[in-house]
């Protein structure tokens, strides 16, 4: 029963034209990045901060570089669109009423929506990673994966690192999506959900620029993003990765809880 609902939710999401357009847009990102770096060529110096410095001739870094960049804006945007469609969109079309009066518990309805969000986030992130590996290898070539620590990992271990990063990024996305779902449960206008989510993410990133607000920084989900780059260090330091994931976990709990409270008390 529940698996059928999960399946139909994902099918329903995939059938929306904007989902397909969104996925197509996401896939373009690693291709454009690989192409851009390839045309920039091996000019003197190279270098730069973070992954940008080691990406030349190191195609397996492209998926991680792409996801790391997209995590700041693009992936939260996509998560907020899906969360907006999930409840607010259905409310707008009047289909949510049918779901709420159906003999299905509302908590289960929320879990179906959350599952749809998770499945689609994982799908989108994996798709970007796969395209990133292909485009990176094609444009920049590869000889294992060079880490920020200067070691070179074999292809197998490199793929494992990419898989780990995919899971970590998906989790961040789901956490943002869960909070967006809570907003989505309160309104009939999907655009309000997207605007609210993106405004929050951007405001968080602005706030984290002010050293005088450092007491606030540990509460912001965006504070956890940069630490995920530790996946590219060798051996992997786990502290920051754990902290970021726990931080996102708290957002997931808060978002899901608020969404459930709102759905349960919602009038038909």
């Amino acid at each position: 029963m529940i698996t059928r609902q999960f399946g139909s939710e994902v099918r329903w999401m995939l059938r929306r034209p904007r989902t397909l357009i969104g996925l197509f847009g996401l896939v373009l990102v690693p291709i454009i990045i690989s192409f851009g770096i390839w045309t920039a060529g091996d000019d003197e110096g190279g270098g730069g901060p973070g992954l940008a410095a080691i990406i030349q001739g190191n195609g397996m870094v492209v998926p991680i570089f792409t996801l790391f960049l997209s995590l700041n804006l693009l992936l939260p945007l996509v998560a907020s669109i899906w969360a907006a469609d999930g409840l607010a969109g259905e409310a707008q079309h009047g289909t949510l009423r049918g779901l709420l009066v159906a003999p299905v518990s509302r908590v289960r309805l929320l879990f179906v929506k959350l599952f749809g969000l998770t499945a689609m986030s994982l799908f989108a992130v994996t798709l970007m990673a796969v395209v990133g590996i292909i485009a990176g290898t094609a444009f920049l070539g590869t000889d294992g994966m060079m880490t920020l620590s200067g070691t070179t990992l074999g292809t197998g271990e490199g793929l494992l690192r990419i898989a780990l990063f995919v899971v970590l990024v998906t989790f961040q996305m789901v956490a943002i999506g869960a909070v967006a779902l809570a907003v989505s449960a309160t309104t009939e206008h999907p655009l309000v959900v997207q605007a609210a989510t993106m405004t929050t993410i951007i405001v968080f990133q602005v706030l984290s620029q002010f050293p005088s607000l450092d007491w606030l920084h540990p509460f912001l989900i965006t504070t956890g993003f940069p630490g995920l780059i530790d996946v590219m260090r060798d051996p992997i330091p786990l502290t920051q990765i754990w902290d970021s994931t726990l931080l996102a976990g708290c957002y997931l709990l808060i978002g899901t809880g608020l969404a459930a409270m709102r759905l349960i008390t919602k009038d038909n």
Binding site: F219, L247, G249, C250, L253, I264
Partner: peptide, 19 residues
């Protein structure tokens, strides 16, 4: 259910301050 959901929110908020 409502209490459980509220407990989830509180746990999340407590987790944030703990972190």
């Amino acid at each position: 259910t409502l209490a459980a959901a509220a407990a989830g929110v509180i746990t999340g908020a407590a987790g944030l301050s703990l972190l």
